[in-house]
Design a binder for these strands. Structure first.
Length: 585
RNA sequence: AGGGGAUUGGUGUAAUGGUAGCACGAAGGUUUCUGAUACCUUUAGUAAGAGUUCAAAUCUCUUAUCCCCUACCA
């Protein structure tokens, strides 16, 4: 017997070592671990953010530490309160509740300004009056060193004065910036005197017109982490080159200070972003899809925003399971979209109540219905709500002479291995009766309009008929779903395919629109669904987010769209069921 | 004068000098009132080359391939 050893990913191993050594406090104290999720409020969260949230939030919970939500609102030109609200909502939906109050980078603007002044006084920062073009020019190229700005060695007092003028709104946008004095010849471009502050004379969504200068990401981020006492500042791989700067700024503030005056120095750790085949996480791409009306909006069920997944019917649990499965590494992995659907099916298979709905209806007429009694009679069938969950119980569903069945469940000349209905074939109607086809009708185009069957009264409830005199029991291979035609509801059903046709949208031509799948949305009207779908019934689970999810037997998982109403039912197909018959075709 | 990362079955991920394991997928089968679910079986891997070592996915070197970096965005 080998003992199961818990597998720790590389960040957990770093933290384990920190706890043991007492790097952040007393050795063994796990509660010091503090992480954060720092979105900029300039758009909606997507599935890639869910991975980042899951890692940082999960670590804080695992160690019994703290998890902050901090809005990195350092650029008023791009940010809006609308996004603050949607991000908070998405985070709670995911189940990642932050500790304490929501934090904002803008709350630290005063502290950041003071520290910037301190750096100027230490001759570690200067005001540069070069134009953006000149600054770019002097930064050099990847393989050639940059050159010093003519303002680099101006007197400290001059920088101090100019920086105060920038702050006071006396300077136009683009006229001057505050830069850190590091090394214009560094092989790391980030260290070639990075800009710390720029002038932005645009009102901020929280601080209004109080500020006219705004800190750049590199200057602000580590300091925000420091102020909040973040121990492990987790971010994605493209910030590896920024880590030296992250550390430089904090060290610059701490230089010359007594130990007791030094500010907290968090550790930045990078991990790989989530990539999923047939999608693109680019915010720019998503914005274009919305603005050019390629989709219905940020919450279009085909979008990979969390709002989109939610409207599509995905559960937060399934997203959690998916991002858990992707792991935490520094390898740029490409996840298969099928993994997400798999996680969804695993979750919904256990929880979603079953219902019957016919997406492409044709009529089935039971011609011998009168033989069992009154031809117009309606029999109530006892139908199981969820075979995976006994506590879900049963429901009564009407059954009568005329039913709707799925068009693809009938073939005039079926191939071998087709288990469904055809001339002289017998099938089970789920939880109904067995029926045998003896005739059908077609319109002038050859389309099937009606299927005529006889039923076997001995098979009520879908049960096998009694054995014959020789003890043999008749069997059927196929079981069809159905809806009673005289007592059902019409519904609109929206079927979704992937938004892009290629595994890496935009990769081939540079324009993701070239890879757009024009047939990603199929709207079906006139679908027939059982009446119990009109409004929530007692057997339905109480979904935390209030979205009703069901499985339509044999066709997939569906949820009720937010545009749906009792008089105009709209269902979104979240995912199909696995279909080994379709795959065989 | 370029710098920083990465590479283990089809995919994702473990093994931290000592048995290459797990999950998903795929293929086949069993069960089944959902061609679903569940269950069983099979499948296939250390990028290449050299070195160190009793022993290398793991350490060293070389090569290849992929990703990131030249906003007053984050």
């Amino acid at each position: 017997m080998t003992e199961a050893v818990e597998q720790r990913h590389f960040i957990q191993q770093i933290i384990d070592a920190d706890i043991e050594s007492g790097k952040w406090g007393t050795p063994g104290d796990r509660t010091v671990v503090t992480t954060r999720f720092p979105p900029e409020p300039n758009g909606y969260l997507h599935i890639g953010h869910a991975k980042a949230v899951h890692i940082s939030h999960g670590l804080a919970r695992e160690f019994g530490g703290k998890f902050n939500l901090r809005f990195d609102d350092t650029n008023p030109a791009k940010e809006e309160v609308e996004f603050v609200d949607s991000i908070k909502y998405d985070l709670e939906w995911l189940g990642a509740k932050w500790d304490g109050e929501v934090c904002f980078a803008s709350d630290y603007f005063g502290q950041l300004y003071d520290w910037a002044v301190e750096l100027i006084n230490k001759d570690l920062a200067y005001v540069d009056e070069s134009t953006p073009e000149q600054i770019r020019e002097m930064r050099g190229k990847i393989e050639v060193p940059g050159t010093d700005s003519p303002f680099r060695n101006r007197p400290i007092s001059e920088s101090l004065d100019l920086f105060a003028q920038m702050k006071d709104g006396k300077i136009e946008n683009g006229k001057m910036v505050l830069r850190a004095k590091i090394d214009m010849a560094s092989a790391n471009l980030n260290l070639r005197d990075p800009v710390m502050y720029r002038v932005v004379n645009t009102p901020h969504h929280r601080t209004g017109s109080e500020w006219h200068i705004y800190p750049m990401y590199d200057w602000a981020h580590g300091l925000e982490d420091s102020i909040e006492g973040i121990t492990h500042s987790l971010c994605s791989l493209e910030f590896e080159d920024h880590r030296p700067l992250y550390d430089w700024f904090i060290s610059a503030i701490n230089s010359g200070r007594a130990d007791s005056e030094k500010i907290h120095h968090p550790q930045q750790i990078e991990f790989s972003r989530l990539a999923i085949s047939y999608t693109n996480m680019s915010k720019r791409y998503m914005r274009q899809l919305v603005e050019e009306n390629h989709v219905m909006g940020w919450d279009d069920p085909r979008m990979i925003t969390l709002a989109g997944f939610r409207r599509r019917g995905f559960t937060p649990e399934s997203i959690h399971d998916f991002v858990t499965g992707v792991g935490v590494t520094k390898f740029n992995a490409m996840m298969d979209m099928g993994r997400l659907e798999g996680a969804l099916r695993d979750d919904l298979n256990k929880r979603a109540p079953r219902r019957m709905a016919v997406l492409d209806p044709i009529k089935l007429v039971i011609t011998n219905w009168a033989d069992g009694g009154d031809e117009s009679r309606v029999e109530m069938m006892d139908v199981i709500n969820n075979p995976e969950d006994d506590s879900a119980g049963n429901r009564q569903v009407p059954f009568g002479k005329e039913l709707w069945i799925e068009r693809e469940d009938f073939m005039i000349d079926p191939p071998k291995k087709f288990f469904r209905l055809g001339p002289d074939r017998e099938v089970r109607l789920r939880c109904g009766y067995w029926v045998k086809c003896h005739d059908f009708k077609q319109d002038s185009d050859g389309n099937i309009t009606e299927v005529h069957c006889t039923y076997d009264p001995d098979t009520k409830g879908g049960n096998n008929p009694p054995a014959d005199s020789e003890g043999k029991v008749r069997k059927v291979k196929g079981t069809l779903h159905w809806v009673y035609a005289n007592d059902c509801l019409d519904a609109e059903v929206r079927l979704f395919d992937r938004l892009y046709k290629t595994e890496r949208p935009g990769k081939a031509t540079g324009d993701h629109l070239d890879d757009l799948n024009e047939d990603s949305l199929e709207i079906r009207k006139g679908c027939k669904v059982e009446r119990s779908l009109a409004s929530a019934t007692p057997d339905e689970p109480g979904w935390n987010d209030g979205i009703r999810r069901v499985q339509f037997e044999r066709t997939g998982y569906f949820c009720i769209d937010r545009e749906s109403s009792e008089g105009n039912l709209i269902f979104n197909r979240t995912a199909t069921l696995k279909d080994s018959w379709a795959k065989r075709q």
